[in-house]
């Protein structure tokens, strides 16, 4: 028998994020090469802006423009950038307090090497060529020789978010943030045993040493007794439809044409039902108690569907406990 199985599992989605007023202003600003902060209750200017005061939880809406130049407050050389990080070649992660801001923003600093980076160094924004209203509109920071222009940004009159947004045409109200994570899925020993048997077109459950009932598919433990199961026992191949529904709507990514019957099937010898599709009989003739058997197709891991055996229907009393 082959050993435990593994398979790649990809979790990927282009998440659509609505922004609310503060993130909308901030990201629209970046698109227009303007960095906006928000003034907190204690007078500090927070960049990146938060919608709510970290100290008091009050709503913050007073936007303030800060400079695209600033000072590194801490840094960390990244010798081996990973996919999707801001720069493909080694760079420094930096927290930058922009001139006019009281808090620091996380981003990347393009520098030739760690010897060229230090806390307190001056940097400026390098804007991305194509800007859409995203944090990546700041391509990265780069070293900058100019002195801090203390107070310059503070001299700008604070303005309300409303009027400012109207200065931007077509404000960004939502962003798409694609994310892909790659996993290795390991179903474990019991499911691997089950899958190995399926490859031989056999359905093999596992019997609980305590209650003697047969779990199929097995998951390594009897769920009611909380003890490990190891004793394999073949079930089926024939079984009884305990209940079902007729599917008239195409499920996402399903290749099957509707209508079809999705059923719970108690295989002979199993103490719980598994599920499968019923074919070889018109949908409206499928019924509870129908006797069925699996139909295997080459290359498929699971039975393609179950079809009627032609036996008389099972009496309700024989399967009602399995509903």
């Amino acid at each position: 028998m082959s050993g435990p199985l593994t398979a790649p599992l990809v979790v990927e989605f282009p998440f659509t994020r609505s922004l609310g007023p503060v993130q909308s202003a901030f990201l629209t600003g970046l698109r227009e090469r303007v960095v906006l902060g928000v003034r907190a209750g204690d007078g500090r200017v927070l960049v990146p802006p938060t919608e709510y005061d970290p100290g008091t939880a009050e709503e913050l809406r007073e936007l303030v423009e800060v400079a695209p130049t600033g000072t590194v407050t801490t840094w960390a050389w990244n010798p081996a950038p990973r996919p999707r990080q801001p720069l493909p070649t080694p760079f420094a992660w930096v927290l930058v307090r922009l001139d006019g801001a009281d808090t620091a923003l996380l981003h990347a600093l393009d520098a030739p090497g760690p010897d060229a980076v230090r806390t307190g160094m001056r940097v400026r924004v390098r804007w991305a060529a194509d800007r859409t209203g995203a944090i990546t509109d700041i391509a990265c920071f780069e070293p900058y020789e100019g002195e801090p222009r203390e107070g310059e940004a503070h001299e700008d009159e604070p303005y309300e978010s409303g009027p400012y947004i109207r200065e931007f045409t077509d404000p960004v109200t939502g962003i798409t943030t694609p994310a892909r994570l790659d996993y290795t899925y390991a179903p474990g020993s019991a499911q691997s045993r089950y899958l190995a048997a399926l490859a031989r077109h056999r359905i093999v459950g596992e019997r609980c040493p305590a209650c003697r009932r047969v779990c199929v598919p097995p998951r390594g433990a009897c769920p009611t007794c909380g003890v490990a199961t190891r004793e394999q026992t073949e079930v089926g191949p024939r079984g009884t439809v305990t209940t079902y529904c007729v599917v008239n709507i195409k499920a996402r990514n399903a290749a099957i044409d509707v209508p079809y019957v999705y059923a719970h099937i108690a295989l002979d010898g199993a103490d719980q039902a598994l599920h499968g599709r019923i074919a070889g009989i018109p949908c409206d003739r499928v019924r509870m108690g129908l006797r069925v058997e699996p139909v295997w197709t080459d290359g498929a891991r699971h039975p393609d569907h179950y079809r009627p055996t032609g036996e008389p229907d099972a009496a309700y009393d024989t399967y009602k406990e399995l509903l």
């Binding site: 996402r252 599920h275 891991r301």
Partner: peptide, 13 residues
């Protein structure tokens, strides 16, 4: 989820 028989029917199913 790999190896598992896909739920053939959606949430309502």
């Amino acid at each position: 989820v790999p190896f598992q028989q896909p739920l053939l029917a959606g949430a309502g199913g």
